[in-house]
């Protein structure tokens, strides 16, 4: 992390469309505002970083929309798919971190992850980043 800039660090822990879009929206907007942004994908959130699972992510029951309905509404608003939004976030400078305990849990190897991942980190590295006074850490 570079000195001076304020940072947004997001934990994306849910594996649903309505769990992941807010993380991507906030991180890309933070970069637009000149901040550094990081997303730490963990537990369900790791689906988006997993090749075999990324395309299968659905909205939660709580949202009350089907995958198709949500995709149609988002497309109408000029919003990319989750997979494209992740690529866009990466291209705009958002750093993407994968959670190593979750990889153990699901038996994932580095080869199973999409190629946007910057680093695989664990709780200790995350907490060290989060404890920086210029970092705002939020859980989604």
């Amino acid at each position: 992390m570079s000195e001076g800039k304020s940072r947004l660090l997001i934990v994306a822990s849910r594996g649903t469309a309505d769990g992941l879009y807010p993380a991507l929206i906030l991180a890309t907007t933070a970069v637009s505002q000149g901040k550094e942004a990081y997303i730490y994908f963990t537990f369900g959130g790791m689906k988006l970083l997993t090749k075999q699972m990324a395309e299968t992510i659905k909205p939660s029951v709580d949202l009350g929309l089907s995958k198709e309905e949500l995709e149609q509404l988002l497309a109408k608003g000029g919003m990319p798919s989750l997979v494209d939004m992740l690529k866009m976030a990466k291209e705009s400078g958002v750093k993407i971190y994968a959670c190593s305990p979750t990889m153990n849990l699901f038996g994932l190897k580095q080869d199973d992850l999409v190629d946007v991942v910057d680093e695989v980190i664990g709780a200790s590295a995350f907490l060290q980043m989060a404890s920086d006074p210029k970092t705002l850490a939020i859980f989604i």
Partner: peptide
């Protein structure tokens, strides 16, 4: 022209 775009696209495109 960001008409029709929803948040966060207008800000990202403006940037």
């Amino acid at each position: 022209d960001a008409r029709g775009d929803m948040c966060p696209m207008p800000v990202m495109k403006t940037n």
